[in-house]
Computed example of a mutant assay.
Amino acid sequence: MEVTGKIKKIDETKTFGSSGFRKREMVVTTDEQYPQMLLIEFVQDKTTLLDTYKEGDQVKVNINLRGREWINPEGEAKYFNSIVGWRIEKLQADGSGAIPPVEAVDNFQPADNVSDEEPDDLPF
């Protein structure tokens, strides 16, 4: 899945526990009729992907949706969702993507070596 929009906020990388688990969060405001502010997490080695981005950049982020269950002390099941980013790319200011459009060629000329009478060698 992917999300496109403008970066609203990028947090610093945070490290948790003795294992050194790293997480970095960003908020992207989507380009829709009713814009959504989505919190996207980047974990472990993916945290460095955000180093070259800044607030206000138009981006496309490839994401995975994650869900987990937690049983509280009373025995009730609670469910949590997260959006995890694994790739990000900067879009052009118009939001069309990083590849510039190909211009049309106005002076197209057909090949000279094509004859009007081609052999009919089709089997039907």
Rank of each mutant, 00 (worst) to 15 (best):
E69G: 08
N72Q: 09
V59S: 06
I40A: 07
E118L: 15
L91N: 04
V84G: 04
L65V: 09
P35Y: 02
S19I: 10
F124S: 11
E55K: 14
V114F: 10
E74P: 01
A77H: 08
I63W: 01
G97S: 00
L39I: 12
I71V: 15
E89F: 00
V28R: 07
M37S: 13
E32L: 06
E55P: 07
G75N: 03
A77K: 14
T13Q: 06
E41S: 15
E25K: 11
G85K: 11
E103F: 05
N72S: 01
P100D: 04
V43L: 06
G17M: 01
D106G: 13
V102N: 12
I63P: 01
D11Y: 10
K9A: 05
K90G: 02
F124E: 10
W70Q: 12
N62L: 12
T15F: 05
S82N: 08
L49T: 01
P123T: 10
G56V: 02
I88F: 07
I71A: 11
A111Q: 15
D45N: 12
L39Y: 01
P100V: 08
G67T: 13
L122P: 03
R87V: 09
R68Q: 13
K54A: 13
T15C: 00
V84Y: 10
D121G: 12
D120Q: 11
P119R: 14
T47M: 01
V28A: 00
T52W: 05
E55N: 07
T52L: 09
D31M: 13
P110T: 11
I63T: 09
K46T: 07
P123D: 14
T52G: 12
V28G: 00
V27D: 00
Q58L: 15
M26F: 03
T52F: 11
N64S: 11
P123L: 14
A98T: 09
K6A: 10
T4G: 04
P101F: 01
G56Q: 03
I40M: 05
S96T: 14
T30E: 05
